[in-house]
Computed example of a mutant assay.
Amino acid sequence: MTDTPIINGNKQYILIEGESQENPVLLYLHGGPGTPDLFFVKDTLKPLEKLFTICYWEQRGAGRSYAALEDKNSISLEQMIMDAEAVSRYLLQKFGQEKIYVLGQSWGTFLGSLVVQRYPELYHAYLSVGQVTNQYLSELESYNFINEQATLRKDSGVLRKLKKWTVPSKDAGAKAWFRYLNFQRWQVARYRGSMRQKNIFLLAIWKLLTCKEYTFADKLNYMKGSTLSVNRLWDAIINTNINEVVTEYQIPVYFFHGEHDHHTYYEGAKDYFEKLSALKKRFYTFPDAAHFPHVECFEEFERIVREEVWRRDKS
């Protein structure tokens, strides 16, 4: 079922999937910014619909919400936080529940950390997949990973480009970062730092092109939304250290991180987790996964969610 509520003056899309509306609600915060991945994760996560009503929210200016955005200057970090709060309250009212769960992936963990810190009363727990901490340090680590892999493989073309495409400074601006990331993220995918077993970009492109939930116009708008979101939000991401801004959670938090993640580096997330304070906290390492452990190792992810999050909350 697709829902299109007006969120802070802007129509936004939510795909709602589940077997029973009596189940607890799980709000899925996609990554990017600006790259909804329901077409990539929905089929894999389908068994979770027995436990939750999963709400895949396409954020302001992203995916199917792009065409409905009249004021492109309205995208800001503060606006995204307010939108996430409004969506959460909308779902609480729609399903008649007192609290919901929230799952963030990649950029969704950046947004998720800030939202659950500000509005803990809205949430049962926070599930983090590929937690963002200090993203500038993640970019430095990711650059070194590509350099090491290109050296091992004697990939002279990539090595030449790495000398040209060095990591921009924090104040380089979103456009410079966007140009860099277009090159850099493709190499991370090629060297299996996005998904361990596959090139995620090739897989995601195919999934997007065959996605039944998207019209042809939605598919054309997808990259427009991604470009817009990165240009509007990247400065905030690269200059905000979550490990300094969010040091305490008043709800249970569960971190899921692939050991081979070279988007949001594993060691940074682990160090952040060790230092943070929370009502309850757990960190789960996936040694055979990269940036998408909930997809790459779904059976183990589902077991943990069912036994450690859903079942314990019900008991």
Results as ranks from 00 to 15, higher is better:
230 V>A: 05
72 K>W: 02
277 S>H: 13
21 Q>W: 12
57 W>A: 00
238 I>G: 04
11 K>E: 15
223 M>S: 12
222 Y>R: 01
224 K>W: 07
64 R>S: 12
306 R>H: 08
131 Q>S: 12
219 K>P: 08
229 S>I: 03
94 K>F: 07
151 T>R: 09
192 R>T: 07
229 S>A: 14
279 L>R: 13
72 K>N: 10
231 N>M: 11
20 S>T: 13
51 L>R: 05
13 Y>G: 01
31 G>A: 08
114 L>A: 02
56 Y>V: 01
137 L>F: 11
315 S>L: 15
196 R>K: 14
294 H>F: 15
90 Y>M: 03
210 T>D: 09
1 M>D: 14
112 G>T: 01
117 Q>Y: 06
209 L>S: 06
287 P>Q: 09
126 Y>F: 15
227 T>L: 14
76 S>N: 10
26 L>D: 00
308 E>L: 10
80 M>A: 06
162 L>H: 03
228 L>S: 05
142 S>K: 07
17 E>V: 07
151 T>K: 11
292 F>H: 00
231 N>L: 15
70 E>V: 13
264 T>G: 03
242 I>M: 05
231 N>E: 11
315 S>C: 13
122 L>I: 04
154 K>G: 03
120 P>V: 04
117 Q>G: 01
132 V>F: 05
89 R>E: 15
292 F>I: 04
145 F>R: 02
117 Q>R: 06
67 A>F: 08
29 L>W: 01
112 G>I: 02
212 K>E: 15
235 D>G: 02
175 K>T: 11
309 V>H: 03
86 A>E: 14
140 L>F: 10
258 G>Y: 04
227 T>S: 14
115 V>S: 05
158 V>E: 00
114 L>V: 02
196 R>Q: 10
32 G>D: 02
191 Y>F: 12
101 Y>A: 03
30 H>T: 06
59 Q>E: 02
218 D>Y: 04
15 L>R: 07
252 P>C: 11
306 R>C: 01
127 L>K: 00
211 C>E: 08
19 E>W: 12
222 Y>A: 02
145 F>T: 05
131 Q>C: 10
112 G>D: 01
129 V>G: 00
78 E>S: 05
289 A>T: 09
216 F>T: 11
239 N>I: 03
43 D>S: 13
191 Y>T: 03
54 I>L: 00
244 E>I: 04
254 Y>I: 04
64 R>W: 06
223 M>R: 11
28 Y>K: 07
156 S>K: 08
266 Y>T: 00
145 F>Q: 05
301 F>Q: 00
170 K>S: 12
98 E>H: 09
202 L>V: 10
56 Y>T: 01
263 H>K: 11
158 V>G: 01
117 Q>N: 11
224 K>A: 09
253 V>S: 05
19 E>Y: 13
2 T>F: 15
72 K>I: 04
306 R>S: 13
184 Q>D: 10
131 Q>V: 09
300 E>M: 13
220 L>I: 14
